[in-house]
């Protein structure tokens, strides 16, 4: 009788501990995502003041739209997208999110990093070349390689079900391209 009760208690405790661990894991993940999104939008405000010019107009529209209740159903997704577009422009945050995502395996991440390094090397060759050299074809190739890499990354993230990061990277591709072209040798 005692041993049965003891066993039941033990099983109950184990189940409770496991449930607590699961809940903690999920809440940590949610908190981390919220923090990243928050810090992304906060830091972006400093980095890209020019990009924020459009955002307040859209957000102002989104703020005023809830008063118009019948048409407000379509408004919130639009305003969320705009917020995301503003938020993703911080490249350091995107890089950190890429490092932490579980959607891509370690070897794939390493391979992607190699490809980014190759792109940067290619870009540096163009930038450090003599001014009179015609690099229009090389720039075109570089852009094609860059677009290919973005699509591969987005495909991998979508496959791994990290849709938020996939969308953010796709939206931030022009910023990423600028950062590649501005990166000093």
């Amino acid at each position: 009788m005692d041993s049965k009760t003891g066993r039941k208690h033990l099983i109950g405790l184990l189940a409770a501990a496991l449930c607590a661990a699961v809940v903690t894991t999920f809440s940590h993940a949610q908190t981390a995502t919220a923090e990243q999104t928050g810090s992304a939008s906060a830091q972006t405000a400093d980095i890209n003041p020019s990009d924020n010019v459009e955002a307040p107009t859209e957000e102002a529209g989104a703020e005023s739209s809830p008063q118009v209740s019948p048409s407000s159903d379509s408004q919130p997704p639009e305003s969320k997208t705009v917020r995301d577009q503003v938020g993703v422009f911080n490249i350091d945050v995107l890089v950190e999110r890429m490092k932490q995502t579980d959607a891509i395996g370690v070897i794939s991440k390493l391979s992607l990093k190699n490809k980014v390094d190759d792109l940067l090397e290619q870009a540096n060759k163009i930038k450090t070349a003599e001014p009179d050299t015609d690099f229009s074809q090389a720039k075109l190739e570089l852009r094609e390689n860059f677009e290919g890499l973005i699509l591969k990354t987005v495909a991998l993230l979508n496959k791994g079900e990290d849709f938020a990061l996939a969308e953010d990277i796709y939206l931030a591709r022009e910023e990423l391209w600028k950062s590649i072209m501005e990166n000093k040798a």
């Binding site: 449930c19 579980d102 070897i107 791994g160």
Partner: peptide
């Protein structure tokens, strides 16, 4: 139930087989 809960926690991780296939694809 416990096994199911534990499996659901780890369900998002990429397996080595998927990681290697993705690397080859890349």
């Amino acid at each position: 139930i416990t096994v199911g809960l534990l499996a659901s926690v780890n369900i998002m991780a990429v397996t080595p087989a998927e990681d290697i296939a993705a690397t080859i694809n890349l």
